[in-house]
Design a protein around this nucleic acid. Structure first.
Lengths: 162, 162
DNA sequence: GGTGAAAGCTAGTCCGT
DNA sequence: ACGGACTAGCTTTCACC
């Protein structure tokens, strides 16, 4: 499905989606049209989901990240569905995972300060029944990448490519 | 620095950076040129850091997320600097935080499966001295947003805007 | 699956208000 | 600081190898 050229293209677009198709083509050793066709296909196939602007958290007052570990007694499908809906409506929750092991769910929450977190926390527990919550505060974001590692991509056998 | 119109623009671009400037202008009630100028300024000021393509993790075999909690005995600047460099070179590490409380650092690591995580883990501890590591596996990514909450932005007093 | 050039939009510039 | 018209450049299409 994806070959080495596609992977090169994805690598570029993951880092900078403003680069013209002609320039991407040049970098991967392709002329404009085939490069464009590949990008189209990657979008159709849903490999490329969207193109977004990434903002500086400090400049928009999103300075504090809190990791919220949640355990629940309610292990039914209905409860999870409702929980997911609640979370989807809270823009402070930037990531949401169902975990294995001790904690059931993990949230990454972004707020300007501790007070705002407290307010968020109250809104959260008011909306949904949760057994136990524990919060861990990040002091500094040392690395944040939207780019996924592409070295694990399962490659289609390339047909006589360089 | 940022007013309500800027915030509306950012909201749009955070979700979809492919929308033409004229259309963004229309949505926020501005004609093309002033809207374009605002976007330029937001880029110059570093509020907009970059535009990137977001990929489907499943389609690029990045199916497993692991949260790695790290504690260290080495609390000096030199060690952290080296640690940060090591992490920066590992594309599997997608996020990296310095934490308060029990754990010193938290990593979000993305790999195709448990075996790949084990290999990553070995490479990590081979490169840097770490006192204690504990790994928590995510079973499912229920929400992932690159968009930051903008309701906390400190707004410049708008001058007679709608 | 690849190339080159034409056509249609969009971003970026200029000038006026 | 906003708006309209123009230009330059990029995306997208098309005909072809």
């Amino acid at each position: 499905m994806i070959d080495r050229l596609d992977r090169k293209i994805l690598q570029i677009l993951q880092e900078d989606a403003t680069i013209p198709v002609a320039e991407i083509g040049r970098r991967v050793g392709l002329s404009t049209t085939p490069c464009w066709r590949r990008i189209q296909k990657l979008e159709e196939d849903g490999v490329i989901q969207r193109r977004v602007a990434v903002l500086d958290p400090k400049k928009v007052n999103a300075k504090v990240t809190v990791f919220v570990s949640i355990t629940t007694s309610q292990h039914n499908e209905e409860w999870l569905k409702r929980f997911a809906e609640v979370i989807r409506d809270m823009p402070e929750v930037v990531e949401f995972y169902r975990m294995s092991g001790q904690v059931d769910y993990l949230l990454r929450v972004v707020v300007p300060d501790i007070e705002a977190y407290d307010s968020f926390y109250k809104r959260l527990i008011a909306r949904i029944d949760i057994a136990d919550v524990s919060s861990a505060f990040a002091m500094e974001q040392i690395k944040y990448a939207t780019a996924l590692p592409l070295n694990y991509v399962v490659l289609e056998k390339d047909k006589g490519t360089v």
